[in-house]
Amino acid sequence: MTEIVLTIDGKEVKARAGMTVLQAAQQEGIYIPTLCHHEKLEAFGGCRLCMVEVEARGWTSYVVSCVYPVAKDIVVRTRSEKVDKIRKVLVEELMAHAPDSPELIRMAEEYGADRDRFERSASFCIVCGLCVRYCNEVKQKNAVGFIDNGARREISFIPEVARKECWDCQECFAICPTSYAQAAYLLTEALAFPGQRKEAVKVKKAPKPKRVIPIMPAPVTT
C-alpha cells in the first residue's frame, strides 16, 4: 500500500494511492461541502461545490475534490477567495430552483450567497442526480433516469419500471436535497398507475408500503 503525503489547509495529511482529495480530507475531519456526492455512489463531479484550490509544481488550479486523485506533495486549500466565490455563485444558481432546501440554506450562510440573486426557475429539481445514480448503482433498478439535455435536463421516473419497483423502496426520497424526487414519483404514480400500489401489496403479500415521508430531507453524508 503506497502512502501519499499531501498538505490540506496547512495540515500534513497521509492518504492511500487512488484516494480522492475529498476522501483524504474527510478522513482527517476536514470539511469540504458536497451536494452530488454520496459515499455509496461513484463520484459524479456534477455539482462542483467541492472545488478546491490545488497547487502542484508551482501551478495553481481549481479541481473538483471528489474526483481529483491525491498526489505526492500537492498543496490543497479548501477555502480561498476564489473558491468561496465559486461556491457562492453556484449556490445562488441552485437557489434559483430550490431556495428552501436546508442544505442550500446552510451553504448560502457559509458563503454569503443571495438566494434571490437570480430569477426564480419553475422547477425545484437541482439535477444532482443522486436519485438516478442511487437507483442505478445501489438498487440496480433504473426506475428513474435523466431525460433531455442542457438547461432542459430533468429527472423522470419510468412508469413501467416504477410501478413494479418503487412502492417498497423509495430510498431516493431521503437522499434528495430538495424533495423533488418524491414529488416526481408521486406525479408519475398519479398519472400512470394510480392506486396500483395497493394491488401490488395484495398480490405479493409484502409488508405495508412505505409511507410517504414528510418533506424534510435528511442530510447527505458529509
Binding site: 455539482c47 462542483r48 444558481e93 441552485l94 442542457g150 432542459r152 435536463r153
Partner: peptide
C-alpha cells in the same frame, strides 16, 4: 441547447 447539462456551472 448543446450542453449535456451534467454540471451546475454550465447548465445553470
Amino acid at each position: 441547447n448543446e450542453s449535456c447539462g451534467k454540471c451546475v456551472p454550465c447548465r445553470e
